[in-house]
Design a protein around this nucleic acid. Structure first.
Length: 254
DNA sequence: TACATTTGACCTAC
DNA sequence: GTAGGTCAAATGTA
């Protein structure tokens, strides 16, 4: 009873945070600091909601079963490197650039998930035999969040740009490179993923790769959250999230 | 014209 | 049989 009331109240708070962010975003005279704070507030509220509800976005299916991909090792030779990050798109904070190029090759409705899952592979898959793929899906709990699963390592010429995604958790403690690249990846899927519903807050998806109007990563695989684009996040590690979304032993297995 | 996206069909694991 | 992942033809866009 109290838990549901708490969850309900948090969800209301979440909606208010979103509206605040949208209004600040609409206000061209709003200081950058205010935009950043709104983004941080929305992300923090979202995590609080998930903690209160025991939900992890689409990590938990409607039947309560974890949505750990049953096919994570379905195909022999795949899933050498697997990462899962969450991306929250917030507001204009400036363009990002990555140099990674993904090509969408499929989209599927996932059972129990309100949003479809998009499948991307490296643009250089055929020309350079790059086996890197990723899956992008909007989080059920918050339409502004993405669940991104990276499968396989880039072996193409752009692998240098992708390297931060594939390094060890310890190495990922280096925000400048890591954050920038993840944020840029967010741009890639954000511009390609299809929206079953209209975006909740004003948010523009750029038409060219590597440019996105404000996004930040909520989580790094190992130790909580990384800040990019000057947001200066100081997020705490979220055990529930990592347990359901991230298996490091699976990630860095040779 | 080249490249990216969409989408239905097919394949495979469970 | 079902669901997730991939393929490939059709279509769209710059």
């Amino acid at each position: 009873m109290e838990e549901s009331a708490l969850a309900s109240e948090l969800e209301r708070l979440q909606a208010l945070a979103k509206e605040l962010g949208a209004r600040v975003d609409d206000d061209e005279g709003a200081p950058a600091a205010a935009r950043q704070l709104c983004g941080a507030l929305a992300a923090s509220v979202d995590r609080a909601v998930r903690l209160a509800t025991g939900s992890n976005g689409n990590a938990v299916k409607s039947n309560g079963q974890p949505s750990q991909p049953r096919n994570s090792c379905r195909r022999a030779g795949a899933a050498k490197v697997r990462m899962q990050v969450r991306v929250a798109t917030v507001q204009d904070t400036g363009p990002l650039n990555d140099g990674l190029s993904w090509r969408k090759y499929g989209q599927k409705a996932i059972l129990g998930a309100p949003y479809p899952r998009s499948y991307f592979r490296c643009t250089h898959r055929h020309t350079q035999d790059c086996a890197a793929t990723k899956q992008v899906q909007r989080a059920a709990a918050d339409p502004l969040l993405f669940d991104v699963v990276y499968i396989g390592a880039h072996t193409c010429a752009q692998q240098g740009a992708a390297l931060p995604l594939l390094i060890s958790p310890e190495q990922q403690q280096q925000p400048p490179v890591f954050g920038q690249e993840l944020g840029s990846l967010a741009a890639t899927e954000a511009q390609a993923i299809q929206w079953p519903v209209e975006p909740v807050t004003p948010f523009s998806f750029p038409s060219s790769p590597g440019a996105i109007d404000g996004c930040y990563m909520l989580a790094s695989p190992s130790s909580g959250y990384e800040a990019i684009d000057g947001l200066g996040f100081d997020m705490e590690y979220e055990p529930q999230f990592d347990e359901l979304f991230f298996d490091q032993s699976d990630l860095f297995q040779p």
